[in-house]
Design a protein around this nucleic acid. Structure first.
Lengths: 341, 341
DNA sequence: CTGAAAGCGCTAACAA
DNA sequence: TTGTTAGCGCTTTCAG
């Protein structure tokens, strides 16, 4: 079946091109009867409007872009579901881009988004991202966008985040409360605002508890490949007087901590208590079950997309800008932070 | 910065539209000097070709579609990474669609793909998909597509799958070998070929071992929501003479089995041995660590995409069709199937 | 090496 | 209610 276009379909039903066009899009200008004729013929001959011709003409792509640092993290899988849940409702298409935590790629992707390919973009920034030039470009092109989860701080736009400082604070409090005297915070980047806020909250609680954060390293940066991180954590665990509590600022650190503990014969929670920022479904069935600070990943994706659409649909784009929505995470206590008396 | 088009750029550099067009695309017809002039001006004025105008003209979208049943399963996250790894190389864009395991949605999505929106599609079918009409439509439109992981059987096209029968066989053998006398296979759909092949392999091994598969249920279909599946498994475990070995045909069943065992105070591997088709990274740190049959998810995505591109790039699309690539999975033994003596 | 012009398939004024 | 027509922004013959 050869692809048929509107012109040919018009000829087949003996109507003008514009009548067919309107009929296809169920315009009120067209009589029910002609609509039926057209729709039937369309069905019969397998006609479907060419989306790109239509996009070109209408200057609307019915497509949004989602830029993610990675997709292995369970958080982003859940967020994608949230995003799709509203995109489907709006009959929008979703382009997924991966920055692989590299600014250069991120810039590249955003350049693509500036060319009119998409009506809006959802972005969670890479951990390298240190300046906002490319975000300004998006803004200049008047393309609506919203940060979700990982925002670029001090940038005036819509964002959907979680209560990171508070959760950082809570994580430290929780560890202290369960008997830790030397808790540390494992970050993945000194420039990633989301990690920094969590770290700041952590430090605040530690300081409040009278622990001298100057004397000992409390914020530790784990960078590189999974293997390098694994080695780094193992080294930490082999130090004399090593930490007795760890906060994993992102999911993948938690797994490395568990692995490193197995290999170093360190018992959780007896020798080390662990708490992780994570949406891992398997947290309850880990050995031991993992205490998590669980972000509302699906809802973050969903809310961000809803906001994006209000911006896309608004005649005055700036009117709805600069909303910051904070969806709270929950601390779910499990055995990895069990108090040992 | 207002969006500038090729016409305006041409005016700005005092060249014709066609010259600019060729310069932008680095045509050999254009002198180095003019190219520089044009490229500089493009950079300066922030010109980027409108992708949809270009698609319309060239009848190429530089976009592929990926249709997934869901994205929560870790397998598909990894596969997406594999897909992106080659799409990025080719400078292609990736549209992700979710069928949510519903044929109706799947058909809908494929209808979209037929309209010329994409140059090719990768698809892993929903567990409801029972006929191939919509795939024929794709074929008629001459849109290259390849099945990955979950194929539609007896459909003549390119597919990248894993050795499901063999692994099903292996899973049963392994359980029997570790001392199970009543192993069962948990499927999610009686119509999903991938599950059926695994189940067939399982049954083959069981029969071979002289266990009468007629007497007791060995293939059990778990359908519905996570909660419903959880309840169903719990019921299974409460039966008199319940199974002493379970194969989870997909990842999410494994989690429900673990949860159900916790709630029912059934010990793994003492009372029940568990093996799962899964790419779960946390398998080694579960309680107990989970024996898995691990699919090469990234490579399946990667290979499927590579094949798709050979089809897209081939002048004679049919020439490269009908390749079936089988990438083997590995059984990784862990404590959930530990032999108890 | 550069330019003029036709047209990809569709939508939206405007006319009838 | 239907039809005519002028583009959307780009690529690509074909002429110069």
């Amino acid at each position: 079946m050869k692809k048929i276009n509107i012109k040919e379909l018009a000829k087949l039903v003996n109507l003008s091109i514009s009548t067919v066009s309107k009929a296809i899009r169920d315009s009120h200008e067209i009589s029910e009867q002609t609509k039926n004729t057209v729709l039937e013929a369309a069905e019969k001959f397998g006609y479907a409007p060419n989306p790109y011709a239509s996009s070109l003409r209408k200057k609307k792509s019915k497509t949004i872009a989602v830029i993610l640092p990675e997709v292995a993290d369970n958080f982003f899988s859940l967020a994608i579901n949230g995003i799709h849940s509203v995109a489907e409702l709006k009959n929008y298409h979703v382009l997924i881009y991966l920055s692989h935590e590299k600014v250069e790629l991120e810039k590249n992707i955003i350049a693509h988004c500036c060319s009119g390919r998409v009506d809006g973009v959802l972005i969670s920034i890479s951990d390298e991202t240190a300046n906002a030039d490319h975000f300004h470009k998006l803004q200049n092109e008047n393309i609506p966008f919203v940060f979700f989860d990982r925002e670029f701080e001090n940038f005036n736009t819509t964002k959907v985040i979680t209560n990171d400082f508070e959760c950082g604070y809570l994580s430290a409090k929780h560890l202290l409360d369960r008997g830790c005297s030397h808790p540390v915070f494992l970050s993945i980047s000194p420039s990633l605002p989301i990690c920094n806020k969590r770290a700041e909250g952590f430090t605040a609680a530690i300081t409040e508890a009278g622990i001298d954060t100057g004397k000992q390293d409390t914020i530790i940066y784990c960078t590189g490949s999974q293997e390098e991180i694994f080695d780094q954590i193992k080294k930490l665990l082999h130090k004399k007087n090593h930490a007795d509590g760890m906060v994993a600022s992102v999911e993948r650190l938690a797994m490395q901590i568990y692995m490193a503990c197995v290999e170093s014969a360190i018992r959780i929670p007896e020798d080390l208590k662990v708490i992780a920022f994570s949406t891992l479904e398997t947290a309850p069935i880990l050995n031991p079950s993992l205490t998590t600070i669980t972000q509302p990943a699906f809802d973050i994706g969903k809310t961000a997309t809803e906001l994006l659409f209000t911006m896309i649909e608004a005649s005055n784009k700036t009117a709805v800008k600069n909303a910051t929505v904070v969806l709270p995470s929950r601390l779910i206590e499990r055995n990895s932070t069990l108090r040992i008396d």
